[in-house]
Amino acid sequence: MLGLTPQDWTAVLVSLVVACRAVAVALPLAVGVAWLLARGRFPGRGLLDALVHAPMVLPPVVVGFGLLLLFGVQGPVGGWLAHLGVRLVFTSAGASLAAGVMAFPLMVRTVRLSLDAADPRLEVAARSLGARPLDRFFSITLPLAAPGVLAAAVTGLAACMGEFGAVITFAADAPGETETLPLAIYAALQTPGGEATATRLAFLSFAVAAAALLVADRLARRVRLWSQT
């Protein structure tokens, strides 16, 4: 179909698996961190803010290298995980980790924007009506921020599918395992006569990204509608 080869489809599938897994794990964390940053008043808040945003300003290779040091078999976290029989480096799960870390600040920012748009006075009203903290979060805060959370999921998905530097550094390029679309494009360009493959994959990437942005835009519009009270 569309002149795509089985290898092309494998790259798309690997990208989707890597990105979906990354977002599934990162999104709840991003919501929690965004809530802490938007509503929390605690010492070390500035530090958390800086730490969360670091992947945005660091070269992706540095992030991938940092992950290697932390999660490598000899690393402090990686060594502990190895005891449990879990290995992340050079695996599909590792690719998700690298992509998820890179997309994390983007997701936190998107969620936080919608949390800031959610009127905290409504939470006071909910409190006066008898809602306890967790109840308030799930009945008022999260639904009000839901369009932003969905938008964060979509942009996070797109960012994870597009991540290159951190993924190739931490998870390497293993076709069918860690070779996502950008890695496949890069590999094709390294191959003599691979330009046609690279072009096909580039268009595929573009289609996926455009679809994600369209969905994100629709959801952002709903956030604005809801905040007009």
Partner: peptide, 20 residues
């Protein structure tokens, strides 16, 4: 006693209805 346990009916100047 936290606000949520007091059982007050608080009517605000701005109605503060839940938009969702």
């Amino acid at each position: 006693l936290p606000m949520e346990s007091r059982g007050v009916g608080w009517v605000f100047q701005d109605a503060r209805l839940f938009p969702h």
